[in-house]
């Protein structure tokens, strides 16, 4: 899972923490809990695992996913149903940023297929800066991330980043994480500037401001539906998420954000398994993207990575 476990944004767990005997500090073993120092060692192990996983991987066939759940009869039918519609999966690091990183990857690929709209996106990001300031993000904290986002869009426009370079771009932690930070700021800004729309949905936070501070701004906290609605409202390209879990349904449950966008609109497709998002590719996209997939395979070979 994302690391460390406390940072996964599972706000439902918060009441449990408040029952601890100490307001602050480590939980003492004498109190009947697992010693936090040993939990810490486990966190380090998990962290190491996450650190060796690339931020984004190559496109792989869905067979791998099927093998992963070979012993899990509740997931298997949904994965098989998924295989009828989808031909590939691009695994994204389980570091708590997976929604943002997956969506951004999908967005950049979408822009490569709709090159005429890149300028519009450059304008959108340029304009967003004032909004961020209006929402209370200070200039000094925003600048580096804003510059990086804009630079990467310009590289797309100038064809310096093509489909085959995109993977390398998103594997560069400095670039990839800067894009994620800016997406988090865009999300937080939208939530703060539309607080009355979102406040009724808060359950464990007193205000949108507090929600953004604890669930959106911190780097390794996973996104919930609220963030997905906000970010897709800002960046506009719809996302279709296929949910699969251990329920006894035979089909994945799809949801599209923002709600109400046309089913025929070309969306970014993501797969959600409890706690994690990856990018998935429809068979039609694969066909349209013959060149892209071939490029991806080529790159994969030169990098010596295995699917």
């Amino acid at each position: 899972m994302s690391s460390p476990p406390e940072a996964t944004g599972e706000s439902a767990d918060a009441p449990q923490q408040q029952e601890e005997a100490f307001e602050c500090g480590v939980t003492p073993q004498a109190n009947g809990h697992v010693d936090d120092y040993s939990i810490l060692d486990h966190h380090r192990e998990v962290r190491k695992e996450v650190e060796v996983q690339p931020l984004v991987g190559p496109v792989e066939p869905l067979d791998g996913l099927e093998n992963e759940y070979a012993d899990n009869p509740s997931f298997l039918p949904k994965i098989r149903a998924l295989k009828k519609q989808y031909g590939g999966i691009r695994r994204v690091c389980k570091d708590g940023c997976c929604f943002y990183r997956s969506y951004l990857y999908g967005l950049f690929e979408w822009l490569l297929r709709h090159r005429s709209q890149i300028d519009e996106y450059i304008n959108l990001i340029t304009e967003s800066r004032k909004q961020l300031e209006a929402a209370g993000y200070t200039e000094s904290t925003v600048d580096d991330f804003y510059d990086e986002f804009l630079d990467q869009l310009k590289l797309l426009r100038e064809s310096a980043t093509g489909p085959s370079e995109l993977e390398t771009t998103f594997q560069d932690a400095g670039v990839s994480n800067s894009l994620v930070v800016y997406a988090r700021f865009l999300t937080g800004t939208h939530l703060k500037l539309h607080a009355p729309e979102f406040e009724p949905f808060l359950t464990t936070h007193a205000s949108i401001h507090q929600y953004v501070q604890t669930e959106v701004d911190p780097m390794w906290v996973e996104a919930e539906h609220v963030q997905i609605i906000a970010l897709t409202s800002v960046l506009k390209v719809p996302v279709r998420i296929q949910y699969i879990d251990a329920s006894d349904t035979a089909e994945p449950a799809p949801l599209t954000f923002p709600e109400g966008c046309g089913a025929d609109e070309e969306a970014i497709h993501l797969l959600y398994r409890p706690g994690h998002y990856d990018v998935i590719y429809t068979k039609t996209t694969d066909n349209q993207e013959g060149g892209k997939m071939a490029d991806g395979d080529g790159q994969q070979a030169t990098n010596g990575r295995q699917a």
């Binding site: 460390p4 406390e6 940072a7 602050c24 500090g25 993000y137 200070t138 000094s140 904290t141 991330f145 930070v181 700021f185 937080g188 501070q213 604890t214 701004d217 911190p218 780097m219 390794w220």
Partner: peptide, 15 residues
């Protein structure tokens, strides 16, 4: 110091 913003609640929006 036991203060969440120094650890898991740290955000690049902080200074």
């Amino acid at each position: 110091i036991c203060l969440s913003i120094l650890y898991e609640a740290w955000s690049p929006a902080l200074t």
